[in-house]
Simulated scan of single mutants.
Amino acid sequence: MKKLFLLSLTILGFAFTTSAQNISENAIGLRLGGSDGLGPEVSYQRAITNNNRAEFDLGWRSARDFDGFKLTGLYQWVWLLDGDFNWYAGVGGGLASYDYNNNAFGYDNDDTFVFAAGNIGVEYSFDFPLQLSLDFRPEIGFGEDYYDNNDVDFDVALGVRYQF
């Protein structure tokens, strides 16, 4: 059993080191998805090592009846798929707040909540400084109204970022 465990650790370590991919030092752009009704998010990625990075996203919406923001922070691991294609997975969380007030229907609601998030996706880096990504982010929130009964929310988004 001990030999099997050591062999598994060796293979896993080899897989992680052989698939390491140099990622851009910085990337900034938009993450275009549902963002729980808060619209597109401004997205910033910062490399930590050759295959790890931090991502920060800020979504906000301001309209006649609705105001809100959502701030997300993620730690991501990046692996080479093929050529300029990478896949990544990460964990993190965030903070959000909204205020919905529709006087015509007598509806007034506001909430501030925190949430935990996972993240998995694929990305392509072009020869020029453009990165496209498609990711899936499940979230579980802890607030009074928005996440009743600790429901899981699923967010799918397309990312367009300038790399520098």
Rank of each mutant, 00 (worst) to 15 (best):
A117I: 04
F126K: 06
D111E: 09
L32Q: 03
F56G: 06
A63M: 02
L58N: 00
Y98H: 06
L38V: 04
G37E: 06
F126R: 07
G106D: 11
D108C: 05
V114I: 05
F105E: 10
Y107M: 15
F126P: 09
Y75Q: 04
Q76T: 02
N102V: 05
N109C: 07
G37C: 01
I48G: 04
G90E: 12
F115I: 07
E55G: 03
G37Y: 01
T49L: 15
T112M: 07
D84Q: 14
A116H: 05
D67I: 03
F115G: 09
G39M: 06
G118S: 08
R64C: 00
Q45S: 15
D110K: 13
Y107Q: 15
G39E: 08
D65P: 00
G94N: 03
L81S: 11
W79P: 03
N102D: 14
G94D: 01
G90V: 13
A116C: 06
N101V: 08
R53D: 14
W79L: 11
G90C: 12
G118Y: 02
S62V: 09
N52I: 06
Y100F: 15
S62P: 00
Y88E: 04
G37N: 07
W60M: 15
G33V: 06
L58G: 00
T72Q: 07
G118A: 13
S43C: 05
A104E: 09
A96N: 13
F128I: 12
V42L: 14
P129A: 03
Y88T: 03
D99I: 03
L95P: 03
G83T: 02
L74Q: 08
Q76N: 11
A89R: 11
S62A: 07
W79K: 12
S35N: 14
N102P: 02
A63H: 00
D67N: 13
F105H: 06
N50S: 10
G93D: 09
I48R: 04
T49C: 10
A104C: 00
L58V: 04
G39H: 04
I120Q: 02
P40G: 13
D111Q: 07
A89N: 10
R31G: 10
T49N: 13
S43L: 01
N52Y: 11
Y88W: 02
G83D: 09
D108A: 14
N51I: 03
W79G: 10
G94S: 05
G94I: 01
F69A: 10
Q76Y: 00
N102G: 02
V91L: 12
G73C: 09
G68A: 06
Y75C: 00
R64G: 04
D110M: 06
G39L: 01
Y98N: 08
F56D: 04
Y75I: 02
Y124R: 12
N86K: 08
I48N: 05
N101K: 14
E55M: 12
E123C: 05
G94P: 02
Q45R: 15
F115C: 14
G34Y: 11
T49Q: 13
W77E: 11
V78H: 10
E123W: 03
F113L: 13
